[in-house]
Design a binder for these strands. Structure first.
Length: 550
RNA sequence: GCGCCAGUAGCUCAGUAGGAUAGAGCAUUAGCCUUCUAAGCUGAGGGUCAGGGGUUCGAAUCCCUUCUGGCGUGCCA
């Protein structure tokens, strides 16, 4: 908010003084308060192109900018920085603005209603969601919330890979467990089959519903039946886990349905028309190397079946047909080899491949009492999203998952997440909110909470901590557009921790309600009420609760 | 081998327009509740920003290179 203003003032001053400004200059918050509220490097960046010494330029800028009433101080420092101290009156204006916007603060039309497709989780429908899916869910959902807040038009979609041989294996696994229930002995459960307990549960449930009738069906029909049953059950299971986690998808797209609509054939013909396919060793290949991939890819295997890639590409094309101009895929760490071929296909079919953007989430390492838990799908000892949520609150889990950059490994310390004390950053932040609520409640009870707020009393806020808190809150709009643009939700947790910390320190240092100073008390109550709103907005965007009592 | 990602305090991590003296939490350690919630606050110690070159007024940040770790490199999905 203020930064943009200062930037404009600097540019105006440069123009007035006849300096050129080809190179980008910056206005930023210095690391040290003695350098003021904001600082610009304009003189140093532009000295070369204007053939003027930085200090001389800086001095002229200072003279020019000093004329502004909104600055309390403008001074030259170091090798040519121009530092600004913003007049308190400016902060009072801003606080009043934040106060009036309440829970709408930070909203903007930055995204210009751009239609964005966020695809994430998209786990195989062959088992419960695991921890990486949980990370993806928290990440994608938070990003979507922020993008919506700043004016994009995003939707969340889950792509169900309910076709292909993994699903066949699932059906076979259920059948084996069914046979087991009926007393059939088998030497050993096959290595490739799904070993998880949930398969047994599926079999039991099906058995209690349909019993031996299943085995009367012809083999082929039975397998189809088992497949449909298992897929549906698992889909509901996954959907349920996600909902418990606060993640509700706008749309679910089934690969099987897509295939039935004939998109596979369509894509194959498109690629053939573009002259990008050839036959070799009884298979059909896509010459993706012509478009930047490091090897060509098989589209149709020698047994006549299709590879995963084809329907997936078709799926991506349907996103474009549905009018989305930005396709964001959130992938797990083991898929990055897959990107060049998708991009290659976009190029081959003359689509703009920059519309396709892929974000990689790195793996999640789960730690329990400082031991890393090793998970193996085969052994069936995967820690599922439900397991996690049975132990850790939704708030803590979501917070931990978004608190790291996407492309960094995430160490999830289960002991820490479970803790409800000062070590756990979620509670640190929520506690600030609860404290404010408590103060406001008490103020209301003591009849010191004003029925209508008076703007003129804000000027009673003169403590550096108070101005710093206002300044911090004004960062929110820029922060949110930055998060949306860079796809980096984790920055929200950094912001919230900073704001909560500033509040905690302020609280322990300064008495907010003081009956002897009514107007000052009112101003401080207004201040913390706005902090409360800003925290509430942040929590809402992270999908965690804002507890009024803790 | 090749490709992608990462390497900042004992641990987990910030440091997003290349800025001034490198920041926080935990852990260690010394304190603060008869006063709006101690799930809080205050102080102390702790660093060759993996190593080495370069770019420039200025580099944890950009370029090159070496080392270390993770992942990928299927006619699996």
């Amino acid at each position: 908010m203020i930064r943009q203003y200062i930037y404009e003032q600097v540019v105006a001053a440069l123009d007035k003084l006849g300096y050129s400004h080809e190179r980008e200059i910056t206005v930023e918050v210095p690391n040290y308060t003695e350098f003021g509220d904001f600082s610009t490097n304009a003189a140093m960046i532009l000295s070369k192109e204007n053939k003027t010494a930085p200090k001389v330029m800086a001095e002229k800028l200072v003279q020019e900018l000093k004329k502004q009433k909104n600055f309390k101080k403008v001074e030259i420092a170091g090798p040519g920085f121009v530092n600004f101290v913003v007049a308190p009156s400016q902060y009072y204006e801003l606080l009043w603005q934040i106060h009036k916007e309440e829970l709408e603060f930070g909203k903007s039309d930055f995204g210009k209603e751009e239609k964005v497709m966020l695809e994430f989780v998209s786990a195989n429908p062959t088992g419960p969601l695991n921890i990486v899916s949980a990370r993806a869910a928290a990440f994608g959902d938070t990003l979507c919330r922020v993008m919506k807040w700043v004016g994009f038009d995003p939707i969340k979609e889950f792509y169900i890979n309910d076709a292909g041989n993994q699903v066949d294996i699932l059906a076979e696994s259920v059948e084996l467990r069914l046979r087991e229930i009926h007393g059939e002995k088998m030497e050993e459960f096959p290595y490739e089959a799904y070993h998880g307990e949930y398969v047994k549960h599926l079999a039991q449930k099906l058995n209690s519903q349909e019993g031996v009738r299943i085995f009367m069906m012809p083999e082929k029909e039975r397998m189809e039946h088992l497949k449909d049953y298992a897929l549906n059950e698992i889909h509901l299971m996954q959907q349920n886990s996600l909902e418990k986690f606060g993640v509700v998808f706008d749309s679910w797209v089934s690969e099987k349905t897509l295939r039935m609509e004939g998109v596979v054939e369509e894509v194959l013909s498109y690629l053939a028309e573009a002259d990008c396919t050839y036959e070799k060793e009884d298979a059909i290949w896509f010459c993706s190397t012509k478009f930047g991939d490091d090897k060509d890819r098989v589209l149709m295997k020698s047994d006549g079946s299709i590879t995963y890639f084809v329907p997936d590409l078709a799926y991506h094309l349907t996103k474009l047909q549905r009018g989305f101009t930005k396709l964001i895929d959130v992938f797990g760490p083991d898929h990055h080899g897959y990107v060049p071929r998708l991009k290659a296909a976009f190029k081959a079919l003359k689509y703009d491949d920059t519309m396709l953007e892929i974000i990689f989430l790195q793996q999640v390492n789960l730690f329990v009492s400082e031991e890393r838990i090793k998970m193996s799908k085969r052994a069936g000892n995967i820690v599922t999203m439900d397991d996690l949520l049975n132990v850790v609150s939704k708030d803590a889990a979501r917070y931990f998952f978004i608190a790291r950059k996407a492309n960094a490994h995430l160490n999830f310390d289960l002991d820490l997440a479970v803790k409800k004390n000062n070590e756990n950053p979620v509670y640190y932040c929520q506690y600030a909110y609860a404290r404010i609520c408590s103060i406001l409640k008490k103020a209301k009870k003591d009849k010191v909470l004003p029925k209508t707020w008076h703007k003129e009393h804000i000027s009673k806020l003169t403590k550096p901590e108070e101005l710093a808190l206002i300044k911090k809150m004004t960062e929110l709009p820029d922060l949110l557009t930055g998060i949306a643009e860079q796809r980096e939700p984790y920055r929200l947790t950094v912001f919230v921790e900073e704001l909560a910390g500033m509040f905690h320190r302020y609280y322990s240092k300064i008495q907010i309600v003081n009956e002897k100073h009514k107007e000052l008390s009112e101003a401080r109550l207004l201040l913390i009420n706005s902090i409360k709103d800003v925290l509430a907005i942040s929590f809402e965007l992270m999908g965690i609760s804002a507890p009024e009592k803790m």
